[in-house]
Design a binder for these strands. Structure first.
Lengths: 357, 357
DNA sequence: TCCCTGCGGGAAAGGGCTTTCTCTGCGGTA
DNA sequence: TACCGCAGAGAAAGCCCTTTCCCGCAGGGA
């Protein structure tokens, strides 16, 4: 690889001058020398060594992001928001997938610290795991002590800037909707119970059912991976245990799609026989058939907010932005079937689809 | 940030010794010193400066990847394959999204070169754009001249290692299937015509139709963005121009999903009234309703191969691995409707779904 | 004529780490 | 006892840039 001194030598100038030309330094350089340098750069196809640059300027510019999996639509949307703000400010993003492995998450914090990122954003759910949480907080504290900025998206046990989707309220909306439609036998297809996202959504759901006079026994909850296959499998187990269920809440849309697959495989009509409500409103939710009724989270906006927090002015006290959840009524949730309908009659509600053309 | 010399000072040793302990150098260090260093590292929460390390060792380890968009399922799958091999070999991946912007693609080549990546993988489609291709090849040549390894996925006019999905054969399979089902009025929802992926798939399709005795006039092709909305919109235009179409080939699955949305919005039954064939077999293809008939590409494997090429031994001559396409029959392609069926009678074929449970 | 100023350029000091080279001191052999 | 060899530790030379500091020179004011 050609180096700066190669360029300088070829142009017949000092490395200092070459550097100034290449970086558009404020220090003036005569046009003649400038051109010689530029010519040398072109001839040698010179590209500055990024590591040397980063080492030489103490400038920290890149931002580190840790997500569970960028290719999961939930995180893809959040990342889109993060990216938008970062790009606007000329920041490079280093994105790491933890694949929901706490150890890997800790490793990535170190890795990103080592890469001298200016800020760190943790975009995955929190874990109910005290040992892990303590370790993580130690590492984050060490990072913050050296001037690093940290923001978390949807995680509780870290006292710092945070963007929180209102998972609990979202769970409540889903539960409330099904209660209003007259459902009582409601099953839940849940993500890993160690995730705070799961438990928060569940808590809201439970509250809504309680207000409707129902409870949510553990046997009507199945925990599985937060993805399509997890949802399909959990739904199968749920139906095996309790064939009379009239509604299923999936704690994210991927799981909901798995649930729909299982229901289709078993020829249980949605929503006539079983209603389904998802969570997140991923883009694909409107394209499955029937279109998925779900709880929308402003995913892109969550990313935007988190990145803005972390790149903006430092605040004296931790800021917590709670972003609201919203019920999106499409076609997978309907009134409880007649045969199983109980006294709490449910007036049919208008549905809406939102397809293109 | 604590530095190596801070650690050394605290442990009462030289930086050299500290470095050796931390990196598990082959040079022996007494247990006593080793422990002192380790203790200092823990107390100071020391993390080595990655840039300084990368600068000091001439060792290149990371691998750069340029894709159109990781959150697009097509690239997400490929990336999964790339990642798998990279992780096995302890390599870090730097993934960049070009968002199909040629200029950005060129910039990223420079950026990654600057970051001293050991290899570069271009995972997007090639472009029909001579000026761009020339520039790209210049940059890649400069990179290769300094020992960098390069592999491309898809057809690029780059003479070097390559992994090629057999897009043409895939297009042929789609066309052949529809011909066999008796369709003649076939519309195509295509991606940007500047992409070689688009033109290759189209070429195969055209060949199949020609063999079936039909042609594929330009008016039955609509070019749009390679995503869901592009597919929805192109389908709408196609139907407006030619309401008699009995089949639509979408050149990727995202577009196919958009096509299904438009057809649903217009109450055109799939596959009874209009058949649809997609391309790629993204994971979601089996979960839409009806499940999507599509052409499968071994996406993960493509990533695995590309990374293996680039991390394996250097070959004297460029290696080109062509990976086959395969038709996956699900539920969106059926026989041409009776009313429009012509002489080339089509025997109904068995369909298969492949849902879970 | 002399001094000061300001401009354009180079020398050199880091920045944090790795690694080669060098040095010291010890045990073993002749 | 003298010498050799080697283990273990440190000194120092890079790796490739950026940026401060300094220097020489030309022009302007006194």
């Amino acid at each position: 690889m050609a180096t700066l001194s190669d360029v300088a030598r070829r142009a017949g100038v000092s490395p200092a001058t070459a550097s100034r030309v290449i970086n558009g330094s404020s220090k003036p350089v005569t046009d003649e020398l400038r051109e010689r340098v530029l010519a040398a750069v072109a001839e040698l196809q010179y590209v500055p060594n990024a590591h040397a640059q980063l080492l030489a300027r103490s400038h920290r510019s890149a931002v580190g992001v840790i997500v569970h999996d960028v290719s999961d639509p939930y995180f893809a949307e959040i990342t889109r928001g993060l990216q938008r703000v970062a790009t606007d400010q000329g920041r490079l993003l280093m994105i790491c997938n933890s694949y929901r492995d706490p150890d890997r998450e800790l490793e990535y914090v170190e890795l990103l610290r080592g890469h001298q990122v200016a800020a760190l954003i943790l975009a995955g759910s929190g874990y109910h795991d005290d040992a892990f949480t303590r370790q993580l907080n130690e590492k984050l504290a060490a990072y913050e002590a050296t001037g690093g900025r940290v923001a978390v998206i949807g995680r509780h046990e870290h006292s710092g800037d945070a963007v929180m989707p209102d998972n609990r309220a979202g769970g409540y909306l889903a539960g409330r909707e099904l209660c209003d439609l007259g459902h009582r036998a409601i099953g839940v297809v849940a993500g890993p119970r160690i995730l705070t996202t799961t438990t928060d959504r569940l808590a809201g759901l439970r509250q809504a059912l309680a207000e409707g006079g129902h409870d949510l026994p553990e046997r009507r909850i199945r925990y599985a991976e937060f993805d399509r296959d997890g949802g399909a499998e959990a739904t199968a187990r749920l139906l095996d245990a309790d064939p009379e269920l009239t509604a299923i809440v999936a704690l994210n849309d991927s799981m909901a799609i798995g649930a729909l697959a299982t229901l289709r495989a078993r020829s249980l009509a949605v929503p006539q026989r079983v209603s389904v409500v998802g969570f997140d409103d991923m883009p694909i939710a409107r394209d499955v058939t029937p279109a998925l009724t779900t709880v929308r989270l402003p995913l892109v906006d969550m990313g935007v907010r988190a990145m803005s927090l972390v790149l903006g002015a430092e605040a004296p006290a931790p800021r917590v932005e709670v972003l609201p959840a919203e019920l999106v009524r499409r076609d997978t949730a309907g009134p409880v079937p007649r045969s199983t309908r109980d006294t709490a009659g449910a007036a049919p509600r208008p549905r809406r689809g939102d397809d293109a053309s």
